[in-house]
Amino acid sequence: MKRAKDWMPGLLLTAPSLIALAVFVYGFIGWNFRISLTDWKALSPDFNFIGLKNYRDLLIDERFKIDIKNSLVFTIVFMIACLLLGLLLAILLDQKMKFEGLFRSVYLLPMAISFIVTGVVWRWLMNPATDDRISGLNLLFTKVGLDGLVNQWHLTPNWGMAGIALPAVWQMAGYTMALFLAGIRSIPEELREAARVDGASEFRIYRHVILPQLRPIALSAVVILGHISLKVFDLIIAIAGKQLALDVPAIYMWQTSFDAYNFGKGATLATYILFSVAIVIIPYLIFTMRQERRS
């Protein structure tokens, strides 16, 4: 057992950060939950406690139903596309070729750019106008003879969120690639050599030697991409502004709280978003810390 004299300075040095995080993360989460139990609807803090009424109301809220559906469509399309494209790019880059660094840098470039810039540019690319107003990617498709690909993008009825997922994939696929590539590179070359000596084809080596080893990386990628997609906000704002067809809980929360000053309901939406992220993140944190302790 170490003496307090030894460890106390460490605790003191980190104390300001720990206190700040205790207040600004955990204190505020608790405070937000408390607000969600009220009918606070004005700038001035004038409210009554109404128990879980806001939560019950949300369950029958039509806009919230749309948001959940939108959020799910976006998450599924975004995650599957990022994982598949990321894995494919990682395997391509693993082939030891010329200009590998150049390809990798370009694929990863969007990570340096904000969702706002991505949204502003893709809004121009995904212009849904047709006929003589046709522009953006649709115009490019007609020019290269791929007229069949012309579509409404994020304004496609019912599937608009899949259109929003496209720029999100453009932004995050390179990151997923980097995760997978780091995983592939950490697999000892002897493992592949052994499989090759046994006469396994290159395809079988990927299928049976490399992919199974990438499971922990895939888990990280799923968690990271998943929590990003549950929080998606600025990208949609920059592409489409605030329209119901492309609404998600994060935008609903923002409008309810800061346009309509309905803080009770806004806090309820915020608690929902936190909950949806926490059920993904907390098990991951526990899992990662256990693994670290074992190694």
Binding site: F24, F28, W31, N32, I35, M253, A270, L274, V277, L285
Partner: peptide
Amino acid sequence: FGMFIPYQSILIPL
């Protein structure tokens, strides 16, 4: 945990 939270969940108190 603080780096993963959706900031909406602390925005009103903030």
